[in-house]
Structures are given as structure tokens and as C-alpha cells.
Amino acid sequence: MTQLGRIYLLAILIFLYTPILVMMAMGFNESQLYELPFSFSTRWYVALMDNQQLLKAGMNSIIIAVITAVISTCLGTMASIALSRRTFRGKSLLQLLLLPPIAIPWLITGTAMLVFFYWSGIGRGMHALLIGHVALAIPYVVLVVGTGFSTIRADLEEAAMSLGSTPIHAFFAVTLPLLFPSILGAALFAFAVSLDQFVISYFLATPGYSTLPVQIYSAIRKGFTPEINAISTLLLLGSMAAILIFARFAKPGDVRDKR
């Protein structure tokens, strides 16, 4: 039984990774039309270096992801402190309000943002993308930091206060150092969420300012070359790295510890 289970898992992994690996391999294939047999070449990566449009979009993506990570981590951590450590009326409603950005299909959220930003004069472009990305990342930050909070007993702060700490000192001396891995994990997570975000960006980007996924989408629809494989490979490796580092900090595999 154990053997069968492991073979099955291996099959699932093959299913999950085959297309990704094929896509990556094609970025190193000489043929423009993805023709086999495979002949190794880095020409598409070289071509990529000259593709100002993709490079600029890639840069935009990284800048937006970094700013999103910073803002959403600050805001989300603050909210998480209140939601995890304080009791007040309407708390469950506020927790419920974190769900729409995660649970409502991004198509709906994205088109709603487009309509509102147009109507209110906020418009589209970088600032609009930032508003959208931060809103999408905040709930994840609150969840990740909140999970971190739940592993820190509330009586640690009480112990600090009994020893003479004010609540603010107790937070900075005891809670924050213990929370730091979760906060760092949340920031990485927010970075990955923003870097991979396509749907919202798609509706809020302008011809002059777009992100990598938006450029990739339009390239796919217009007819693509292995350059797209090359840049996609880089994008995948980037977000996989962010998530793997996140996994080191927040240990999402240790599900049973999340109490």
C-alpha cells in the first residue's frame, strides 16, 4: 500500500511539473517554432536581453512586488495585532471582510477596480496597480502573521508586564522578535502574490505601463516566440524561490502547529 501511494504521488508530481519543465526546455531550443528534435541554444535568452518591452515590464513587476510587500506587510501586521490580541465588537465582521480579495474571482475584483478607478479619476497605471496589489496581498499577510501570533502565548506579554514592561515595551521586547519570522514570511508571500498577479494587472495596466504577466499574456495571444519561454522561466524561478524561502520561515507544511 505504501509503495502504491508513493508511486501515485510521483505520478501527480510528474503531472504537475511536466508542462513546466517542457516549457522551460523550449526556452533553450533553437527552433523558433518549437520544433523537435531539441537542439540546445541560449539565443532566446540573448534576444530577451534586447527586448526592452519585456525587460521594462519585468522591472515594473519587481518594483511593484517590492513596494507591495513593504506596504502590505506593515498594514497587515498592524491589523493582525489588533485582530489577534485585542477583543472588540465587530471583530468577526472585520475578519470576514478580509475574504473578498481572496475569495471573489479576480476577474470580478479586477473589473470592479477598473470601473471605480476610471469613475473616481484614480485612473490606471502604476499607482492603480499598487492599490490593487496591496489590497490582494493584505489578507494573506494578516493570515500568515495571525498564524504566527497564534503560536505566541498571550501570557508572555503578561509576564513581561508583570516584570515592569509597559504594553508597548512588552510588544517590542517579547512579541515582535518572536513574530519576526512570520513577518518576513508574510513579506515574501506578498512579494510572490504581487509578482504572479495577472488578472488585476491586466485590467489596470496601460499601454505605457504594464507588468510582466500582462506582457506575456498579450504576447501569447499575438503569437509567441521562445523568448516568452525564457522570460516565463525566469518569472517562475523567481516566485518559486520566494515561496521556498517563505516555506523555510513559516513552515506551511507543519500544519498541525497552526493552532
Binding site: 502565548r153 501570557d155 508572555l156 503578561e158 509576564a159 513581561a160 508586564m161 508583570s162 516584570l163 515592569g164 514592561s165 509597559t166 517579547v174 522578535p177 518572536l178
Partner: peptide, 20 residues
């Protein structure tokens, strides 16, 4: 007077030692 001004010593059921 808040806790931190009372000069009390307290022991908790969970020990509440600062793990870091």
C-alpha cells in the same frame, strides 16, 4: 496603577519564559 507599576512577581501556569 497598571500592572507594570505594581512591582509584583508572577508565575504562570505555562511558565511564560521568553523563548528567544
Amino acid at each position: 496603577v497598571p500592572v507594570w507599576g505594581r512591582n509584583i512577581g508572577m508565575m504562570f501556569q505555562s511558565y511564560a519564559l521568553f523563548p528567544h
